[in-house]
């Protein structure tokens, strides 16, 4: 019994240490973004909005934000649409080579980002589609599809296999059943997939840096400012990016987890 308690406490401390390790730098960056001193040192100077004001009066930052938002929204929509189709195909049909199809569909996140980025750049330049905003959208869509598919598949697996046939049985065509049964049933996971893929795209640096050309996204401009000098503006921009991404991920988590706990059907 005593061992049990000791183990439990050790595990708790271990978990706490890991969280501190992960979040301390982010927290530091957050704190320093409001610090009036130019260099991140302790003791802190006074509270200021200065860095936020500077960052957001920079037109480069604004255009990067525009690109990032456009890319995140477009690739989230595309990736979720494709991910939904792939997940539904997996759920509904059995066909030769289905395993291979699934492996292929879930592969992109396992490829090192730099290699993926380089390959995408090479591939897109063949079509003359490199260095444009649309290039980032294409690359991010490919990167995000597996996430969307995984989230939606989770929800589809909870669906009573008779639910769709029941709709047909009551006079719904396959399209009507899709619209009035499958989509409403998977809606939480569709929204979750949208949030998650938008967050992935919004955060992503390597691929965007390779294929974006002159259309910088927020992570790319952060690096650009950072290579020049140590500028607390980075802390300000970083904090905003973090808040946006974590909100999207938390929304996704709540939508997915909330549904799993609640027993459905029968």
């Amino acid at each position: 019994m005593k061992d049990d308690i000791t183990t439990r406490w050790l595990l708790r401390i271990y978990t706490a240490v890991i969280f501190i390790f992960i979040f301390a730098p982010i927290l530091a960056s957050f704190v320093f973004s409001f610090n009036s001193d130019r260099f991140p040192t302790i003791p802190l100077g006074s509270f200021t909005w200065h860095w936020y004001v500077t960052a957001f009066s920079d037109s480069d930052v604004w255009s990067a934000a525009e690109v990032s938002i456009l890319v995140a929204l477009s690739s989230a929509l595309l990736a979720t649409a494709i991910g939904f189709s792939a997940a539904y195909t997996d759920h509904r049909y059995d066909f030769f080579g289905k395993k291979a199809f699934l492996v292929l569909a879930l592969l992109p996140p396992t490829i090192p980002l730099v290699i993926f980025a380089l390959a995408t750049l090479g591939w897109l330049s063949i079509f003359g589609a490199s260095g444009k905003v649309v290039s980032i959208i294409i690359a991010h869509t490919v990167l995000c599809v597996p996430f969307a598919m995984a989230v939606i598949r989770l929800r589809l697996n909870q669906m009573d296999p008779n639910l769709e046939p029941a709709a047909w049985n009551l006079g719904a065509t396959e399209w009507m059943a899709m619209k009035s049964v499958v989509v409403p049933f998977t809606l939480p996971s569709i929204v979750a997939a949208l949030c998650l893929t938008a967050a992935v795209s919004f955060d992503e640096f390597a691929v965007a840096w390779f294929v974006s050309g002159l259309n910088k996204t927020v992570p790319v401009i952060i690096l650009e400012i950072l290579t020049g000098n140590i500028d607390p503006q980075i802390n300000a921009i970083g904090s905003v990016v973090f808040v946006v991404s974590i909100s999207l991920v938390v929304i996704a988590q709540v939508l997915v987890m909330g549904r799993i706990k609640k027993p459905e059907t029968v």
């Binding site: 009573d160 639910l163 046939p165 709709a167 049933f185 459905e264 059907t265």
Partner: peptide, 8 residues
């Protein structure tokens, strides 16, 4: 058998 009611 499972009733297959639409849960939403």
């Amino acid at each position: 058998q499972s009733l297959a009611l639409f849960p939403f």
